[in-house]
Design a protein around this nucleic acid. Structure first.
Length: 504
RNA sequence: GAUUCUGUAGCUCAGCUGGUAGAGCAAUACACUUUUAAUGUAUGGGUCUCGGGUUCGAAUCCCGACAGAAUCACCA
């Protein structure tokens, strides 16, 4: 604990004053609440003849404007802020004016929690307020909050240092109006998805985070150690292979909001732990999945914004289904003007070099095409677009295309120049799957540290037979960034990863 | 991981070419019974991120560390 500031000392001294007056600064008893700031503000009209409305509400004091024998204060509860009007007369108890002179005027600080009872009214200037006739101390705040002021939409003295905001998210949530709203939206997005999947027969499951073999994606994992087993485990990079095992087991529609962990760089679109929704539906293919996905996205946008047109940065993104669909080969051909469909690995490498893309010997045909696409095309897709039919080399878990040789039945959903979802007709041929894993093993030998491990148990499961299935992974954090119009992943994660704080 | 920028009061910031720190809000005291960035008067508050160096003298210049942001690389 570092040294206390002057203001912290003052607040601590007030605690002694509480004791002297016999008032509990941290009372144990519940406080009965029968209204919220939002309810009051949205229903009270202040018209003549309107019935008197006595409320009991609780929250944190965010401002005090003391004016002699009366005062205005601002109370913040979960739903918003409401103004309080307090006067000496109303807190007077016979001869005893302690509640006003001592408790309200001297001991109450910005940041303290109080409960109040009073009558709703409108002030001269027309602001709905509560005329307080009783107040109870609920919890004392010992640290001064940053004071953010606002007038006509203009913010003064904002609490804006990103480091402080993310490390002390609790303070950010208290003082910055709108931060709480972003996270409520995140919750609503997830709830909308969950409801939608449940309505369509989805079963929510939990699969292991600690895995022997980190499978289902190309990424570097975190490694941890189990003491009793004296074994290394990996934190999952994806849950795909486990969900498919459940399809083998007879579930026909499973989903999981999967916290995944990847030991890679951090920036404003990457956090070491992040959330992906994956779901798998038996007897479906990737065409069905595109239909289902665009319906889902349209529904989320409507639920959240009441419209399918969502502002994202400088653009308006339309989530109105159906979304555009284009083959990845066509997309690259369009961007480069060169038909790459018949090119071999060396020709592709040359093309990459021509566009000044970094390539090396470990990159196979699939990676080269991926490179071309993500460098030359990805950013162009602002409106939701399904990029479909990827080369087999870059999709080791995807079923071969039913009619296009060399391709697989896969799509990625691009929105605002970013990949938001990735889906396929799942590869369920165990012989083919084994061959694809062996390809990956070769890539690993060539030095690709993101190539997949061979998961023998997963192959064994497939050998028992998996129905034709379509599956998808949707990046929930990025979806939330889109729908809340945030440019940084840290704005949609309550506690984004940070380097450990140095203790003084 | 690389490059650039940033770190001064509880918060947001100022501090020119080196002379030992300032504003607004917040706090404290007083005044004010419908204010709303309330107002007025007065007061207090700082190991200038940390550690070295140059200098008579460093918030300021140099080196290093720590933390954050932006861009790039890797990736979702």
């Amino acid at each position: 604990m570092s040294q206390l500031s002057e203001q912290e000392i003052v607040r601590r001294e007030k605690l002694k004053e509480f004791e002297r007056l016999g008032i509990e600064a941290y009372p144990a008893a519940l406080y009965e609440v029968n209204a919220t700031s939002k309810q009051i503000l949205s229903t009270f009209k202040g018209e003549e003849g309107e019935a008197e409305w006595h409320v009991s509400i609780a929250g944190r004091i965010m401002a005090i404007r003391l004016m002699g024998k009366a005062a205005f204060a601002v109370l913040e509860d979960q739903h918003g802020r409401i103004q309080l009007y307090v006067s000496k007369n109303d807190l007077q108890r016979g001869e005893d004016s302690t509640l006003w002179d001592e408790v309200f005027k001297k001991l109450l600080d910005i940041g303290d929690f109080i409960g109040i009872k009073g009558k709703v009214f409108k002030t001269k200037t027309g602001e709905t307020s509560i005329h307080v006739h009783e107040f109870t101390f609920l919890s004392k705040s010992l640290k001064p909050l940053p004071i953010v002021k606002e007038k006509d939409g203009e913010i003064y003295d904002s609490f804006s240092d990103p480091e402080l905001r993310y490390r002390q998210r609790y303070v950010d949530l208290i003082v910055n109006q709108g931060v709480r709203d972003t996270f409520l939206k995140r919750t609503q997005i997830i709830k909308t998805i969950r409801d939608y999947l449940n309505e369509h027969g989805g079963i929510e499951v939990d699969t292991p985070v600690l895995q022997n073999i980190p499978g289902g994606a190309a990424a570097r994992p975190f490694i941890t150690h189990h003491n009793a087993l004296d074994t290394e485990f990996y934190l999952r990079i994806a849950n795909e292979l486990y969900l498919k095992r459940l399809i083998v087991g007879g579930f026909e529609f499973v989903y999981e909001f999967s916290r995944n962990f990847r030991n890679e760089g951090m920036d404003r679109t990457h956090n070491p732990e992040f959330t992906v929704l994956e779901f798998y539906v038996a007897y479906k293919d990737y065409f069905w999945m595109m239909d289902f996905t665009e319906q889902l996205f349209e529904k989320i946008a409507l639920k959240l914004h009441g419209t399918t047109d969502v502002p994202v940065g400088d653009n308006i993104v339309s989530f109105k289904a159906p979304f555009k669909r284009i083959g990845i080969i066509d997309a690259i051909t369009e961007a480069t003007g060169v038909d790459i469909s018949a090119m071999n690995e060396d020709q592709l490498r040359e093309l990459c070099k021509k566009h000044r893309l970094e390539v090396d010997a470990t990159m196979g045909k699939g990676k080269l095409i991926d490179e071309l696409f993500s460098e030359l095309c990805e950013k162009k897709f602002v409106q939701p677009t399904f990029i479909i039919d990827y080369p087999v080399e870059m999709s080791p878990l995807t079923k071969k295309h039913r009619s296009k040789p060399g391709l697989v039945e896969r799509f990625e959903l691009m929105i605002n120049g970013k990949e938001i979802a990735n889906a396929y007709s799942e590869l369920n041929d165990p012989i083919d799957q084994r061959a694809r894993f062996e390809e990956q093993a070769k890539l690993m030998e060539r030095g690709d540290d993101e190539a997949m491990f061979i998961d023998q148990d997963f192959l064994r499961a497939l050998e028992y037979g998996m129905p034709p299935t379509s599956g998808i992974g949707i990046g929930i954090d990025r979806l939330c960034m889109l729908l809340t119009n945030q440019a940084s992943i840290q704005e949609v994660l309550l506690f984004p990863q940070m380097k450990p704080e140095k203790q003084a």
